[in-house]
Design a protein around this nucleic acid. Structure first.
Length: 811
RNA sequence: GGGCGGAUGGCGGAAUUGGUAGACGCGCUGGACUCAAAAUCCAGUGUCCGCAAGGAUAUGAGGGUUCGAGUCCCUCUCUGCCCACCA
């Protein structure tokens, strides 16, 4: 008998599939289309186990859908712009383009080992001009609608990477650069922005329409950070100036005993009294030098400085002092707050420290005035609003103040516009030139793409080499033709990945970014699978771009990803995050060498719930390999046995197979890969048992079992399934065969075992026909030889029969 | 501080509406095969008592509802992830 040798059959079938083109999708057949893709990978040059965990199961879904008869498109590409290429260039003196393309080549070869059913006609790499051309097109479209703009603002700057970062790219407790971990500093710069805030409400509301993990939806909601409240105007005492504050709790205005401005607030120096001016200046100076880390660690001991100015509380008409403090952020709301120490933790701490008055303006059951409390309650110390609920007062106070134009309702968001400028070389050039006469001028669409030179010189400082490329920088003004300068900033790579799923569908179109009619037939992506690390950034940007294209470019859908699944994280065998320094990295190439791609795919899906991830176990992959070996052995014995006349175990085998079809089908639908695989293992074990009992390995029902199992296994372990399918005498691929159907009648067993409980404890088991009546079941249970003695002299108070499960007697 | 998860044998994990807890895999033990080992096959494997039949006990801890709770309710402990001075 031939041995199972994945090293031989896996490359063989990968070649056969490539040559026969069985995974090429007919793009014209759209009625039953199913578009499933993993998230666009970065071509780091090494395919790690996390990629396998993303791509393998995604391919399993694609293969399952294909066998169910749907017209599946699945493919992959590369998110090929970005910093690592430049770092490699600086460190190793190799051009980013060369480094990237060589990585793409080697990763493409590694990806081939997975045996995924990609249609490579749809692949792309974002660093190719035929892709980034359309990033530039998108930029111009946004610019036309006023949704791409340039502004001077304080931005997050990474001193190491020498570039601006989006808010979303500043991470961790101490605000470090997402890429290199260097603490980010604040710097004022001119940058390009995409006006994502125009879509805030849509981005929020449409979350309801998608089939995404609740966790991701919540993360996006929190990021958008909608809060409803009011803007209230406070008059500065003895001046014509006003301070506007944003508050979500206008009902607590009678408890506003002081105000606080952010140190950066423009009014600070204008209102500060002469005697306070020096301290105020000093405080501003001090806080401007504080790093984010220092600002955070001072969370519990607040700092601040008195301005010497006073404001009039419009509700109480009393004078309240105005402070500045860095616990108030210039970037949120109006950069100024009314402080209600009795009902806000931060204000409480500040008031305690600086000995400011504290007035509780509502009662709350269980709360004491020895401390602050928030939430709802009954108003007091609030004039005519006393006795109302806080919710009622909230509305009334704003309405009343609004009559005097002192307040108005206001909704605030945390979401900021998307800063897309990067002072880096390896990215999409922004299609803008600067002309002395005409200022900022967008290029004409016909002049696209602005080609990024691929032979540049790097200096160790990381300075953008485009700045020194005169042939790039010097150009002509599209309006007047006079000498002008090109923008040297490039786009954030998240622009690249914000629409690539549209380009996949029409990847070779060199006239337009995509054919709208085709896109409308194939979108949205039916199932999108990738890591939760993209819960905010990528997914929010992709949704924004999709909505923009919907509004202005004829897309008839507003959400790009119908269903989203986040795979878990594979940890090292020690349960820790895999890292080179820990030495716990599992190399998938080695696993493929030792066990085969099918075993690795299978193991990754078998180790636990897909969304959970977990530690990699060397024994575990040996187990899935053993399962494939056992299946292979059954096949070999079947083929060698020759034909037999009888079909002794026919019914039992048929029932077991149908049960397995049902289980695997339903589990795959839910992405419960682990239990689907265990069901297949059970069937193989069952066949082994029958073999041991009868010595038979061949009959019509054995053939049925082996063929069906091959089909069920095909989405998980595509190579061995194809090999076995061929051995069983099929000419065409198992992967385009029709997914087996189960017969409910055959799944149902004729004889079942019921548990018999006395007072809730299992005391015996009875074997009865499935369709037994309640009365019969109870009678048989009572007469059972183990049960009867225990009933002696006792009265049965109650008898419960759960069909198919148990009989419970209460005595 | 806020939000969302999670806690089941030696390990990864099953248990779809409250119905025989521990499927499946790993590991371990014993047996078959072998000169021997590996591989393979067969059997066993939550814990405690017992030669056994059997019994007791058991899903982070404690309480509750129920004929019956891993699953529902209350209290608590531990833990993972995300966000966080957002007014």
């Amino acid at each position: 008998m031939r041995r199972y040798n994945p090293r031989e059959i896996e490359p063989k079938w990968q070649n056969v599939w490539a040559e026969s083109g069985i995974y090429k999708t007919n793009m014209g057949r759209t009625a039953d289309k199913f578009y499933v893709i993993p998230m666009l990978p970065y071509p780091s040059g090494d395919l790690h186990i996390g990629h396998w965990y993303n791509f393998g199961p995604t391919d399993t879904v694609a293969r399952f859908r294909r066998m169910l008869g749907q017209n599946v498109l699945t493919t992959i590409g590369f998110d090929a712009f970005g910093l690592p290429a430049e770092n490699a260039a600086i460190k190793r003196g190799i051009q980013p383009a060369v480094w990237t393309h060589s990585n793409i080549d080697s990763m493409t070869k590694q990806i081939a080992q997975i045996g995924a059913s990609y249609d490579w006609d749809h692949t792309l790499a974002t660093c190719n001009p035929d892709y980034y051309h359309w990033n530039q097109w998108l930029f111009l479209k946004l610019y036309e609608k006023g949704l791409a703009y340039r502004a001077k603002a304080v931005v997050n700057w990474c001193p190491k990477d020498q570039t601006v970062l989006a808010n979303e790219q500043v991470v961790g407790d101490n605000n470090v650069c997402e890429r290199c971990g260097t603490p980010v500093i604040q710097k004022e710069m001119e940058s390009w922005y995409f006006k994502i805030t125009d879509y805030t409400e849509h981005l929020l509301a449409d979350l309801e329409s998608v089939d995404w993990p609740e966790k991701v939806k919540t993360m996006q909601q929190n990021w958008i950070g909608k809060s409803q409240g009011a803007l209230i105007n406070f008059e500065v005492d003895g001046s014509d100036k006003h301070i506007e504050v944003f508050t979500t709790r206008p009902d607590t205005i009678f408890g506003a005993t002081y105000m606080v401005l952010a140190p950066e607030h423009p009014l600070v120096m204008k209102i500060a009294s002469d005697e306070c001016q020096p301290q105020v200046e000093q405080y501003i100076e001090e806080t401007s030098h504080k790093t984010e880390l220092e600002r955070k660690t001072s969370e519990k001991h607040k700092t601040g400085s008195l301005t010497g100015a006073y404001a009039i509380n419009p509700a109480t008409q009393t004078k309240i002092p105005i402070w500045i403090a860095d616990y108030v952020l210039a970037s949120y709301g109006t950069g100024a707050i009314m402080s209600v120490p009795a009902h806000d933790e931060r204000d409480w701490e500040f008031a305690k420290k600086f000995d400011l008055p504290i007035v509780h303006v509502y009662d709350q059951t269980g709360a004491s005035e020895d401390s602050w409390y928030n939430g709802e309650g009954i108003m007091k110390h609030s004039g005519k609003y006393d006795g109302l609920s806080t919710a009622e007062a909230r509305e009334k106070i704003v309405t009343d103040l609004a009559k005097h134009k002192i307040a108005k309702e206001q909704t605030n968001y945390k979401l900021r516009d998307w800063l897309i400028s990067r002072q880096r070389y390896w990215g999409t050039p922004i299609p803008i030139v600067y002309c002395e006469d005409h200022g900022t001028v967008p290029l004409d669409e016909k002049d696209l793409p602005v080609i990024l030179p691929e032979d540049v010189e790097f200096t160790p400082t990381g300075r953008n080499p485009l700045l020194d490329r005169e042939d790039f920088v010097n150009t002509k003004c599209p309006i007047c033709g006079k000498a002008a300068k090109r923008e040297t900033d490039t786009m954030d790579t998240f622009v690249d990945s914000s629409w690539y799923f549209l380009r996949y569908l029409d990847a070779k179109n060199n006239k337009v970014p995509f054919d709208t009619e085709l896109i409308n037939k194939w979108m949205p992506v039916d199932h999108y699978i990738g890591g939760i690390e993209h819960a905010i950034l990528h997914l929010l940007y992709a949704r924004f771009v999709t909505k923009f294209l919907h509004d202005h470019h004829g897309l008839d859908f507003e959400e790009p990803f119908k269903k989203l699944t986040n795979q878990g994280i594979i940890l090292g065998p020690d349960g820790q995050k895999m890292s080179k320094s820990r030495g716990n990295v599992i190399n998938p190439d080695e696993m493929v060498k030792s066990y085969g791609a099918d075993s690795l795919r299978l193991y990754l899906m078998f180790m636990g719930p897909y969304e959970q991830g977990g530690p990699y176990d060397m024994g575990g992959i040996a187990g899935t390999r053993r399962f494939l070996d056992r299946f292979w052995t059954l096949l070999g014995e079947f083929l060698e046995a020759g034909s037999t006349a009888g079909d002794a175990q026919g019914l039992e085998i048929t029932a077991a197979v149908h049960k397995t079809i049902k289980k695997v089908s339903q589990d795959l639908e839910r992405l419960d890969f682990n239990t689907a695989i265990s069901a297949m293992m059970e069937l193989v074990n069952h066949l082994y048992k029958l073999k041991a009992e009868t010595g038979l390995t061949q009959s019509a029902s054995w053939r049925f079992a082996l063929e069906t199992l091959t089909q069920l296994l095909a989405p998980f372990a595509p190579h061995i399934a194809e090999e076995i399918w061929e051995s069983l005498g099929h000419d065409s691929s198992v992967h385009i065969s029709t997914w087996p159907q189960w017969d409910e009648k055959l799944v149902a067993e004729e004889i079942i075992t019921l548990a018999v409980q006395i007072n809730g404890k299992v005391r015996s088991e009875i074997v009865v026909p499935t369709d037994i009546s309640e009365a019969e079941a109870i009678e048989i249970a009572k007469a059972d030889e183990k049960i009867a003695p225990q009933l002696d002299g006792k009265t049965i108070k109650k008898a419960i029969y759960v069909p198919g499960r148990l009989v419970s007697l209460v005595i």
